[in-house]
Design a binder for these strands. Structure first.
Lengths: 335, 335
DNA sequence: TCAGTTTTTGGTATCGATACCATTCTTGAT
DNA sequence: ATCAAGAATGGTATCGATACCAAAAACTGA
């Protein structure tokens, strides 16, 4: 313990009395080495506590065995599931994940991408599909798989894995309309950064216009600093109370919907009689809990797994280019 | 765009008509290069779209500018805050974060650590403090800072940043006792994997024994596959109903507490009159929302930032060894 | 037993940057 | 004008692995 330097492959080779390349082969292609030497090398590795140096390996083989991910936030439970699925699938294949979050800032994305490329990853995952021109140029010039996830761009840079946020918004609005709701509001326009949320809102607007209705969006400007549950609470206080014609609210996320639901109950607003509420994200609570929110379940983990597969085998994935994993509208008690 | 290979430092040097080392210096120590050449090099970099290769740099300088993190799960909002603080602070200093999650499995931890060390990180972050002997040996032999976070081990391997889970459990139990509760249950023993939860439970047991009370723990065995909100719901159905002496429940997490709260309301159990409920994690909802859970707020983001600082300047951090960032008991309406 | 294969093994160059040392160029003081 | 001290610059070795090719060993069938 506490040796000054790392044990190198040469040390192992000398100890086992073989050439360095044999040690390399024991690690990468064991069946190409005779059993005697293989065992001797494996013992030497154990004995000396050798840990291979991947930075050196990456340099000579130009394969880093690392994938880079640039996500808008890790602070989201459904996103976290994707990361879980992604990183565990990759690790099983002997790859690691270099993670960066941008907090929805495109300039940070550019910096992050440069930092990532400096590590010569074998592939890149992005949760955003709107990039600065520099980013687009870089991504196009790079000879590695680029996977955009959680949405389906019309013109993917390379490969896309996700589902249609537009369709999700459309379907949910349609569901509310079918339930006989007359004045359906959309809550959560504020998130100018969140392009997935905007797509869902666009779906909502389209569905309404298909039946000749006008959208009601709140907060009406993007100045609002409210988000999550607090935004939901504020909606009841500041919007629903002043505009009692509203009989349904479609929330940008489950968090927001939860805020609306709790505050509605506290204020004696009957759900779903007076106000129908829908969320997004696949809130895990169901009927028995008393919080049975109608929502859209998203295959978060599956996206992660499919992304990992696409990274590991880009050729196959490129045949499809856009991999749509769909979503599920879960009708529960709040609508 | 679409060039076969990466642009190398040599290419930039030739283009700018300088030596490679000058290019290197422009990137790392710009003030040691004359202004004329510096500008020429910077233009060449831009012109050619040069992205430095850090794997090569890491090899020759033995500084990878990458830190590795092994977390039990990313699927936890408070953890996510730590990761956010950690990775953004590190990136500002020009470092990246290599993230691995173990899903609470110590064997995975060992694999993950080996994979991480193969990338020769400049430091390591761990959320667990119970390791296999192989892991402990490896971590001790490594000459880089090792930071254990989210708890305070009595004998840290190197540096620890966090707060006392034991104390948090103790204080919350004490709070319930002070509120006059007679039969306080602890909900969430099942998480054998979650050592932080176990510490809090130990604090609870201690607080009760200090006043001569017996602990009530549910589920009583670890066979339960329930977790999160569902566990909270199950508690009311299966435990509280059968043992009506219980007048308080201290939950291992806010999620669980939320489940208890919702189900209690649905079943007509009065909170806090019939049942006091406490959570853990710093649930962001407060009084106006109707869900005003008494909880313990944890400085998640601060832990991330402090960890980053410790990694970047281990010498200073080692003076303290254990950095206690504390926690805050937030008394709200459920107790 | 031997030529012809196939498998196993090792030597050497190489990946792209930085470290170290040597050299050249400034600059200021005498 | 000359020299010393310091700044700027470049050449070459090096980091630790893998690629590529050549050599040695083992195996095949006649």
């Amino acid at each position: 313990m506490g040796k000054g330097k790392w044990v190198t492959m040469k040390d192992v080779a000398d100890f086992a009395n073989v050439g360095t390349i044999t040690v390399s082969r024991v690690l990468r292609t064991p069946d190409k080495v005779s059993e005697t030497k293989r065992k001797r090398v494996q013992e030497a590795i154990k004995e000396l506590g050798y840990v291979p140096d991947n930075t050196a390996g990456a340099l000579s083989s130009s394969k880093s065995r690392v994938f880079g991910a640039i996500v808008s936030t890790v602070n989201d439970s459904v996103f976290a599931q994707t990361l879980d699925g992604l990183s565990s699938t990759l690790r099983m294949a002997g790859y690691e994940l270099l993670l960066t979050s941008t907090n929805y800032d495109p300039d940070v994305e550019e910096d992050a991408l440069l930092a990532l490329l400096a590590r010569r990853p074998d592939g890149i995952v992005l949760t955003s599909t709107t990039h600065t021109s520099a980013v687009t140029k870089l991504l196009k010039s790079v000879r590695i798989p680029v996977v955009e996830i959680w949405q389906l761009p019309s013109a993917p840079l390379d490969i896309a894995v996700g589902f249609s946020n537009f369709q999700a918004g459309y379907d949910m609005a349609r569901h509310l309309i079918d339930e006989g709701r007359k004045n359906i509001a959309f809550l959560g326009v504020g998130g100018a950064q969140d392009e997935r949320g905007r797509r869902r809102r666009d779906g909502y607007i389209n569905a309404l216009s298909d039946v000749g209705k006008e959208p009601i969006m709140w907060p009406d400007c993007e100045q609002s600093s409210l988000y999550g549950i607090e935004l939901g609470v504020a909606f009841i206080e500041r919007c629903f109370i002043t505009d009692p014609m509203i009989d349904a609210v479609m929330c940008v996320s489950d968090q927001v919907a939860l805020g609306v639901l709790c505050e509605a109950r506290r204020c004696g607003v009957k759900v779903p009689e007076d106000l129908a509420i829908s969320g997004f994200g696949g809130f895990e609570l169901a009927k028995p809990s008393g919080i049975d929110l109608t929502t859209i379940a998203v295959p978060g983990k599956e996206i992660g797994i499919a992304t990992a597969k696409a990274l590991l085998d880009p050729e196959t994935a490129r045949d499809k280019k856009v991999i749509d994993l769909g979503f599920t509208l879960i009708k529960r008690g709040t609508t």
